[in-house]
Simulated assay, not measured.
Amino acid sequence: MSLYQLPTGTYETRAAFAFKGGSFREKRRFAATATLLRHPKGDLLIDAGFGSHVAAHIQSLPRMERAPYQANGTASEQLDAHGYDRGGLRGVLLTHSHWDHVSGLDGLQVPVWINEGELRYANEHRGGKVFRAVSAGHRIQQYEFDGPAYLGFSSSFDVYGDGSVVVVPARGHTTGSVIVFVALPTGRRYAFIGDLTWQIDGIRRRAERPLLMRKLADTDPGLVRDDLLRMIALADVMHIVPAHDVTAYEGISRLSN
């Protein structure tokens, strides 16, 4: 087993909008990064990052949600550039279905792994608009949380059946958002927490989103707060990766030929 980051680009926002107590003068680069998880039973991407049509995807957002951005190579382009055999890729496991996590599906003709709650959100909510466009033609690999409680979360889905990759529900940002726990053979452990917090400051400072952003971005801010506290309690035993914190991916290798 191994992990690789595929940084597909960034967009810019103010720290004041990212976490409570952040400065309006400080600009933050929000990561749009896919993570390749290699496993003997088949590989997965955790989220898809920016796609080749990212400009159109951003343009489709409400004006207040658009931000200056910089695109790197898509996940698809990076896999090909490094000679990756796509026959080993089982699909894309989404932390949730917002545009900056799914844009890259436009170049990845593999199954989309998603749970029932998130699929319903993606098909019905305005936040799923880009997902509905880029997922057309993809096979939907729907999974259920039929496993036991895990690290304080009420239920789980063991992807490979060996405890190495366990998905838990974190239904506060969207109605089906998840956290993906990864345990490598080296003993290194990771938690890919999606948008539970946008920046690692949310963990280190015990800081939720500012009130306005909680109201605008989260379907249930109370659930987000509860799960954020659970992850804060785990911060000393694993590497926590908020999806949009550029620095959180440090230590995860990039693909090489």
Rank of each mutant, 00 (worst) to 15 (best):
N72D: 15
K27V: 09
S76C: 10
G172A: 12
R28E: 01
S256W: 07
A16D: 13
P210E: 02
I200T: 06
A207T: 02
A71S: 10
H173W: 12
S2K: 15
V241A: 08
P68Y: 09
A243T: 08
P242D: 09
T33Y: 07
H82D: 00
E250D: 14
G147E: 11
G87P: 00
D220K: 03
H53E: 09
G137A: 13
V110G: 00
V54L: 13
A75I: 02
P111D: 00
G137C: 03
Y160V: 14
Y121F: 15
A15K: 04
A67S: 08
P148R: 15
H125D: 15
D158F: 14
T174D: 07
F30S: 05
H98D: 06
L6A: 00
V130D: 00
I58A: 06
T174P: 04
G161L: 07
Y84I: 04
G9C: 02
G202V: 11
Q142E: 13
S253I: 04
A48L: 10
T197K: 02
A32V: 03
A75K: 00
G222Q: 12
L61E: 04
L89V: 13
Y4V: 09
A248P: 11
I240G: 05
T74C: 10
G202A: 09
A16M: 00
A133C: 01
H98A: 08
K215V: 04
R28T: 02
S253R: 15
L223H: 12
R132D: 08
E124D: 15
S2P: 00
S177K: 01
G127L: 03
R188P: 08
K215L: 13
I232V: 14
L119I: 02
Q5N: 03
L184H: 07
G222W: 06
M1P: 10
A55N: 09
R28V: 07
D100P: 01
